[in-house]
Design a protein around this nucleic acid. Structure first.
Lengths: 163, 163
DNA sequence: AGGTAATAGTAACATCTGATACCAATTGCG
DNA sequence: CGCAATTGGTATCAGATGTTACTATTACCT
């Protein structure tokens, strides 16, 4: 006889968190563990763009978008990178000041700025991306195919639950 | 005939990342997705301690430790919370300034400070923790027991791979 | 014991980040 | 049309965060 889904879920939650009644074990607390892991992963990836190429996290995200979407309006970058408009503004300025990106006004709406990679920026992009992809492959390599599949689904589920 | 583990892993990685050769789709890039998810989760939990009780993330972590470990030396808090000693110092000062925690010198080593919750701090802890645990339960509730189990294993594996 | 090195914690400074208000350009509506 | 409202982007300032160097206390070494 199968137990109910609810009972199974509660049991699993207890296994995850090792919680009893009214106490909280930070080491086992899922949000803490997730924050910690994301931090570790972020640091590992940052080695690629930060230590080697002196980019901030925000600049790296914008660069990643520009590599795929040349001629993008600044206002479109925010939603694609989860950065607010101030962060985008500063990141793009940072890239521009190093000759990685260039900006020009949109001809039909002179408020908007259109951002694009310079040749140097495209070269940088092509140099960094393989390292970034390698990091990801390396990381996911410690998981089985099944685990990766479940992880993918789980991340979508959690993200959706929080929107 | 079963394929090799390596082949399976590569295939899974491709499914996760939807990458072809030399391009990087930020939306599918695992480190980005993880950072984004951790951010969302962090925000959801922060509603509990930040909006309702005006604690910073660091103060909340220290409070969580103090709830379980009364009379802890400041220097032990860092490793338990993944905060550096300056962050711990400031968090503890913040808690103290609001009457949540108290400090005294270690009798045998007057460099060390021993931190403890005040009665008001213990009351606060008992008030917050149920909400924090509820948030976690709510979140993990969207997953099946099997998914939670795999997630737990995956997080351990990834964390270990990065240490 | 005496002097050097190490440790716990913090002050002080520099930098980053977030929030608000602002300017310029455009849209919409009477 | 003309003027209020909206939009894209940035300057500016306050608060948060990281880094360095410093003080006080203890440990170590000969």
């Amino acid at each position: 006889m199968g137990r109910s889904g609810e009972a199974r879920d509660r049991e699993a939650t207890e296994r995850m968190t090792a919680q009893d009644g009214g106490e909280l074990d930070l080491q086992q607390y899922f949000p803490y563990r997730l924050a910690r892991l994301a931090e570790q992963v972020s640091l590992a990836v940052a080695e690629v763009y930060s230590e080697r190429f002196a980019l901030t996290r925000q600049e790296w995200r914008v660069l990643a978008i520009l590599g795929v979407r040349p001629q993008i309006a600044t206002k479109e970058i925010g939603p694609l990178t989860t950065l607010d408009k101030m962060q985008v503004s500063r990141a793009v300025q940072g890239l521009q000041s190093r000759g990685i990106a260039s900006r020009k006004h949109h001809p039909d709406d002179r408020r908007e700025l259109i951002v694009a990679l310079t040749p140097a920026g495209r070269a940088l992009y092509r140099k960094i991306v393989p390292f970034a992809l390698a990091r990801e492959t390396e990381l996911l390599g410690v998981l089985t195919a099944e685990e990766v599949k479940v992880l993918d689904r789980v991340m979508h589920k959690l993200s959706a639950a929080l929107s």
